[in-house]
Design a binder for these strands. Structure first.
Lengths: 172, 172
DNA sequence: CAATTTTGGTTTGCATGCTAATCATTTCTC
DNA sequence: GAGAAATGATTAGCATGCAAACCAAAATTG
């Protein structure tokens, strides 16, 4: 747990340094990147894609919009949804933005042998799945490592293929 | 990186559930636990021990103090330092507090074979060291896994054995 | 011993990030 | 089609978490 907190703090610091480079924090960058992947998408889809809650996404989008990187336009069909449009400035900023990884850390990673990097990634994803699965049944715990890797993004950001009749997991 | 963010979020959620149990968040619990380990210690030592920055520790201590779990008493020798005393109520709360790990996640861990748990831990600590080391030279990157594990807590929470003439690494 | 620097804590300002509550709109039910 | 339930987004309120600025006390320097 201590190691996890150290990592969290380090990631946070990375994010902050990122700001000095391109004016974007980690979550903002991730959101912006995700937003311009498959055209305008509702905010909730973005939230699922980057594993954030609705209100958090609202805040991030507000900051992105204040800087003119995205625009929120209410959907035509569903007037509730807010489609996130990436502005040209947003695209440009995204192009200029460095990788999400600090150069130093990136360099450190490249010095490691490939198998070790893969092992790390596998381990992180496994832990992530393990911790994500706390709400669900114990079933995923029986999955093999290979399955865990495959189940990284279950059905997160599909805008139209999302099952329409599943109950929402919002408040119970 | 996505996996890391997922883990961070999951840890955060754990922390929030923890509140419902004993009224303490993860960082608060870690701080309180660390505070009652070796008697009253200055806030800065606690901050180093739990890998947090000074201002953050100030906020956490303020909340802990507001709930009567700790008391801040200025040191006699060095009037700048703030010694953190754990109150009886704090001790009691700490005793009632569950482990930092959510039961579900804990159970999931116990179902894993020991070697896998150890591998995970090793991996996490290695990553933490890697990311922590970004400020320093590239030297730590050459350390073996064994060294990384040994260097988990370099000199974090030693109250009196801390080298007195080392330059501070605050802003430069 | 006075002036400077260093050091320990706090305050300020900002960005995440959550849950609970709220609003608007859509969909479902009768 | 009117009322109820569900859904998408936002708001309110709180807890981290940081850096920069700031204050007070100690150590250093002259």
């Amino acid at each position: 747990m201590a190691a996890l907190r150290r990592i969290m703090r380090a990631v946070d610091l990375h994010s902050r340094r990122l700001v000095e480079g391109c004016g974007l924090t980690g979550p903002q960058l991730a959101t912006l990147r995700e937003a311009c992947l498959m055209g305008p998408r509702p905010a909730s889809a973005l939230a699922r894609a980057v594993h954030l809650s609705g209100p958090t996404m609202t805040g991030i989008l507000s900051r992105l919009e204040r800087r003119g990187l995205v625009r929120r336009i209410r959907g035509d069909a569903d007037r509730r949804t807010v489609l996130v449009h990436v502005t040209p400035l947003g695209l440009e900023t995204l192009a200029r933005a460095p990788s999400q990884l600090q150069d130093r850390f990136r360099q450190a990673l490249t010095t490691l042998p490939e198998w070790e990097r893969l092992a790390m990634l596998s381990n992180l994803q496994r832990i992530a799945s393990l911790m994500d699965a706390e709400d669900l049944d114990a079933a995923p715990l029986l999955m093999s490592e290979h399955d865990v890797l495959a189940a990284d993004e279950p059905d997160a950001d599909r805008p139209d293929e999302a099952s329409p009749s599943l109950p929402r997991s919002r408040s119970g």
